[in-house]
C-alpha cells in the first residue's frame, strides 16, 4: 500500500515481502481477467493501458496535489512516438515501450515545467492549455500522427522474438499484465521512498517543506517526468496492442476520464488508481452495452454517489474502514 508503516521490520525482507504481495495481487487479477473474459481480452488490454494513465495521474495529483486536466498528452505522445518508431522499423515491443516511456518523460518535463510553476486555478488552466496544444498539434501534424484518420499499421514483432501478438489478443494481454506487474512493483517501492514521501508533504503544506530546506519546484518537475514515463509506457502499450492510435488518445475527454477514474478509486494510493480504472471501465462496458444512449447519465450518478459516500475514493475508504474495524476489535 502507499501508506507507510513505521512499525514494519527494518529489513530488506519487508520490502521484498511487499513486492511479492503486490506481484501476487496483480497476477491474480490478471488470471481472473483471463478466465472471466476469455473472449474479451482486447477490452481488458485497453483497460490496462488506461490504468497506466490513471496511475501516472495519481503520481502528480494524488501525491503532489497538482490539479491537471491535460494529462492525456503524456499518454498520447508516448503512443505516437512508439507508433512512429515501429513504422520506421523499430518493431521490438520492449524497445517500443522504452521509446514510449522516454517520449512521455520528455512531455512530462515540458508540461511539468509549465504546470507546476503555479498553484490552484492558474495551474488547472495551464494544464488544459497544454493538453489542448498537444491535441491540436496531433491533429495538424498528420504526417506523423495520421491526423483524424489515426496512425495505423503499427505491428510489433514477437516478444523476445518468440511470442507472436495473436488476433485473439492473448499474447497482448499476458504481455500487458506482466508490464503492469513490473511497473506496479517498482512504483510501489517508489511510493515508499523519501522522494515520494516528501511529495506528499509538499501536497500537505508547501511552505513548511520549504522551511525544512526543500526546493519545491524542481521536485515537482521530476515527479512530472516520472509520471510522464509511466503514462508514455501506457501509451506505447496501447499502440502495440491496438495497432492504431487515434486523436482520442490525447483528447481532453481522455484526461477528464482519467481524473474521474482516479477520484473513483482514491487519489494518493496507487492501488486506488488501478482499481478506479478497472471499475470505471467495467461499469462503462456493462452499462453502455445495456443502455448505449444513457450510460453517461449513469456514470454521473455513480460519481455523485461515490463522492458523497466515499469522498476519499473507494480503495482509501475501504482501507480506512478496515483499519477502524481492526482498531475497534483490538480495543475490545
Amino acid at each position: 500500500m502507499a501508506t507507510l508503516s513505521v512499525t514494519a521490520a527494518p529489513s530488506a525482507w519487508a520490502g521484498l515481502r511487499n513486492d511479492l504481495i503486490a506481484a501476487a495481487v496483480i497476477a491474480v487479477l490478471g488470471a481472473i481477467g483471463w478466465f472471466v473474459y476469455p473472449d474479451d481480452l482486447a477490452f481488458l488490454t485497453r483497460v490496462i493501458g488506461l490504468a497506466f494513465l490513471v496511475i501516472s495521474l495519481d503520481l502528480v495529483t494524488g501525491y503532489c496535489g497538482v490539479a491537471t486536466l491535460g494529462h492525456a498528452a503524456l499518454f498520447g505522445v508516448g503512443a505516437y512516438a512508439a507508433g512512429n518508431f515501429c513504422l520506421a522499423g523499430v518493431t521490438d515491443p520492449i524497445l517500443m515501450l522504452l521509446i514510449g516511456a522516454l517520449a512521455g518523460m520528455a512531455t512530462g518535463l515540458v508540461s511539468g515545467l509549465l504546470v507546476t510553476r503555479f498553484r490552484g486555478l492558474p495551474q488547472l488552466v495551464l494544464s488544459i492549455a497544454f493538453g489542448q496544444l498537444v491535441a491540436a498539434l496531433a491533429n495538424k501534424l498528420s504526417s506523423i500522427t495520421g491526423g483524424s484518420d489515426g496512425l495505423a499499421g503499427i505491428s510489433a514483432s514477437p516478444v523476445f522474438g518468440i511470442f507472436n501478438f495473436d488476433m485473439f489478443g492473448r499474447t497482448g494481454y499476458v504481455f500487458s499484465v506482466i508490464v503492469l506487474l513490473i511497473t506496479m512493483v517498482v512504483l510501489l517501492r517508489f511510493a515508499r521512498s523519501p522522494f515520494a514521501l516528501m511529495c506528499r508533504a509538499i501536497k500537505d503544506d508547501t511552505l513548511r517543506t520549504r522551511m525544512i530546506g526543500v526546493s519545491v519546484y524542481p521536485r515537482l518537475v521530476v515527479m512530472y517526468c516520472v509520471a510522464g514515463a509511466v503514462a508514455g509506457l501506457g501509451g506505447a502499450l496501447t499502440a502495440i496492442n491496438t495497432g492504431v492510435i487515434g486523436l482520442d488518445s490525447v483528447s481532453f475527454e481522455r484526461s477528464a476520464e482519467a481524473l474521474i477514474m482516479l477520484i473513483l478509486g482514491g487519489a494518493g494510493n496507487l492501488w486506488g488508481a488501478l482499481i478506479g480504472a478497472i471499475l470505471f471501465e467495467l461499469f462503462h462496458h456493462y452499462v453502455s452495452a445495456a443502455s448505449p444512449f444513457h450510460w453517461m447519465i449513469l456514470v454521473g450518478v455513480l460519481l455523485i454517489v461515490v463522492v458523497l459516500f466515499f469522498p476519499k475514493g473507494l480503495v482509501n475508504e475501504v482501507t480506512r474502514r478496515i483499519g477502524d474495524f481492526r482498531q475497534a476489535r483490538a480495543a475490545r
Binding site: 507507510l4 513505521v6 514494519a8 521490520a9 527494518p10 520490502g15 517501492r189 517508489f190 515508499r192 521512498s193 523519501p194 522522494f195 515520494a196 514521501l197 516528501m198 526543500v214 516520472v226
Partner: peptide, 13 residues
C-alpha cells in the same frame, strides 16, 4: 536523503 526514489529509509538505523 530525500532525493532517493527507491524504497523507504525511514527505518534505516
Amino acid at each position: 536523503l530525500t532525493r532517493r526514489m527507491f524504497s523507504s529509509v525511514l527505518d534505516r538505523s
